[in-house]
Structure formats: C-alpha cells, structure tokens
Computed example of a mutant assay.
Amino acid sequence: MNSLVKHISRIRDEFDTVICGVNGVITDGQNIFGESTDALIKLYQSGKKIALASNSGLRVQELFTALKHSGVPMNIFYALITAGEIAHFYLKNQKNIGTTYYSLLSQGSHTLGGLPYEKVDSVVMADFLIAEQSIKHADIKEFMPVLEQAVNLNLPLLCVGNDTSVQTAGGVKPAAGAAAEQYALMGGKIISFGKPDLRIALYLTENLPDFDVSRCLFIGDNMATDMRLSNNFGAKSLLIASGVNQLKGDLVKQADELSTGFGLNVDYCMEKLQW
C-alpha cells in the first residue's frame, strides 16, 4: 500500500536524487504549475540532485528553452532527457530504415529536424511512420485509415514517447502511445523511444558520484511509463494523482487499485507536487 503525502518536504530525508517527469507534474503542456516548480526549487536548495525525464517529442534544447521561457529555473536540474532526443540520435545513426516518412502530425516532426529524411503526404511513398507525443490534440480514430494502409505495406511506426494519454490544458488527450498501441494490435511493427526504457534511468544516474538507487525518487503521473520505469530501476516512486489519471477522493485506495492493475508498486501518492 502506498502512503499519501501532502507535502514532499515531509519525505525529503528519504532520497538524494530525484528524476522528475514534466507533463502532468510541472506543466500541462501550456501552463507551468507554480507550486510544483517551487517544490523542485526547494528540493534543489536542500541539496537534492534533480533531473528531468520527458516523453515529449521535442529535442532537449527545445524543451529546455520552452521551460526556461515559461519561468522554470533550469539551473536546478543537472540533466534533461527527452524521447525526442533519443529518437533523433537513433535516426541520425540508423541506415536501414529508409529515407521518407509519414508523420501523424500535420506540421511534421520535431524529432527529425535537421536530419536527411523527407516528409511525404502519402503512406504509399513512406518508408516509415512517426508518432510523437504532440499527437495528443487529435482523435486516434482519424488515423485508422492511415494505420490500416501502413500495416498492409509492412511499415514500421516510430513511437516517440510511449504515453497513451497526457494531461493538457484542455484535459486528458490521447498521445503517441495510443497510436502505437492500436498499430501493434493491428499487427504493425513498433519502434519505441522514451520511458519506461531502463536506459533512461541509467543514463541519468551513471555519472553521479556515490549514487544509491534506494535513495532515488521518481516523480511522475503515468503508471505505465513513470512508475514502471521506477519499479524496473529499483527506485522509490511518487505518483502525482492530479495528472493524467485525474484521481480524486480516496487517493491511496485509487492509486493502489491502479498500481495493482499494472502489476506495479507505488511508494507515495500526492494530489499535486508541492513543498
């Protein structure tokens, strides 16, 4: 059973390192949560090492700039990683995936910026599909004809950010993982990037002196990505109830039921991140 925590200051002596999600924890993709940012600032001031791990399709510099312009003091984080950056690195060094892509985003791809791949407007001209977290503003059903056509052509779908849904200023919306999940059910091949890939946690902690995984806390709002990565890594976990799951009422009971359904353990639950 998880423990309900109203203020993260109450448990700050139980960890030295924090790996924190972005969407659903400190922002809804448009607005910054002031109390959550303030809590991270105070954790930093109390000597905690804090990194951000996002399933956003944005590159690291893009997300860094967006958060900084929104008033988040980026100097409090020792590292930042995004699914978009991981996918960009993969595609920069990948020679066998082809040269043309069909994006499930009408405006193209953040991930592929600066790389020698050509965006095409027809699936039959594509070597692969790409879905990024920004797909959240669309209805997955509208992509069904595209996915059916792509399955028949045996095209791989690159899923940048594995969240099936994300919190937005307009409510919870489907994300890239939802398209990938549907494509997999149809028999399509998926290449995914982002949490809960264990390599993200290893990358963020491998160079920390005297790192102790038992004194590492993951903060996130997504059970399938944030909490699963925390469990796989062997770290403590803090679920933000007001994020994508929109938990209300008896948070401990609901978080326990949710974690049991995923076969995971959650150590702490908070309505929202606050000091």
Rank of each mutant, 00 (worst) to 15 (best):
H7G: 10
I11D: 05
D13V: 10
D13R: 14
I19G: 05
C20A: 10
G21I: 11
G24W: 06
G24T: 07
T27D: 07
T27H: 10
D28R: 13
Q30N: 13
N31Y: 12
G34C: 11
T37G: 12
A39Q: 05
I41F: 03
L43W: 04
G47S: 09
K48L: 11
L58A: 10
R59Y: 06
L63E: 05
F64P: 01
H69Y: 14
V72W: 02
P73I: 05
I76K: 04
T82L: 06
A83R: 08
G84W: 04
H88Y: 09
F89V: 15
L91H: 04
G98L: 08
Y101D: 03
Y101N: 05
Y101W: 07
H110S: 12
L112D: 07
L115P: 03
P116D: 13
K119E: 09
K119D: 01
S122Q: 13
M125A: 13
M125V: 09
I130Y: 02
Q133G: 12
S134F: 09
H137E: 14
A138L: 14
A138T: 12
I140P: 02
F143R: 08
F143H: 06
P145K: 08
Q149A: 11
N154G: 05
N154H: 15
L158R: 07
C159V: 15
V160Q: 06
N162Q: 15
T168N: 08
V172S: 06
A176W: 02
Q182Y: 14
Y183T: 01
I190E: 01
G194Y: 00
G194H: 01
K195R: 02
K195P: 00
D197I: 05
D197L: 10
L202N: 13
L202S: 12
E206F: 08
N207V: 07
N207S: 13
P209R: 09
F211V: 15
D212N: 13
V213R: 15
R215H: 07
F218K: 07
I219H: 01
I219G: 01
L229Q: 08
N232V: 07
K236Q: 13
S237M: 02
I240K: 01
A241D: 00
K253E: 08
A255S: 05
S259G: 02
T260H: 12
G263D: 02
V266D: 00
V266F: 01
M270V: 08
K272R: 15
Q274Y: 04
